[in-house]
Amino acid sequence: MTKLIMIVDDSASLRQVVAISLKGAGYEVLEASNGQDALNKMTGQKIHLIISDVNMPIMDGISFVKAVKQLPQYKFTPIMMLTTESQQEKKMEGKAAGAKAWLVKPFQPNVLLNAVAKLVLP
């Protein structure tokens, strides 16, 4: 069964870049432009992994992770942060919110795909 991965980022071009890497590896992709948009689009889906930016309008990435962890259906869905933020304090914020991994942009496709392979739900 093909695994579904959600990409949450306000940059459409970056969503394209991530999507093309994931599709090339055989994953299906669902895109959202911010945390609130993602929460709206998650309903009724079976998502195996969420990749989210941190700095976004309307709802930022950390708030989004906290909101996802409140949803019974997605409580255990792994979340990886993909952001330009590299400061340790920010990483700790993400960890405390419930993120499983933190990847700093710009990313290399093999690094992204290795991380995805380790995190994605069976």
């Binding site: 980022d9 940059s11 071009s13 970056l14 394209q16 870049v17 093309i20 890497s21 090339g24 700095n55 330009t84 942009k105 710009p106 990313f107 290399q108 496709p109």
Partner: peptide
């Protein structure tokens, strides 16, 4: 093309 596409990541950083 995939490599070129990856290099377009600069836009996100430039934008920020």
């Amino acid at each position: 093309i995939a490599d070129v596409l990856l290099n377009l990541q600069f836009q996100d950083r430039v934008n920020q």
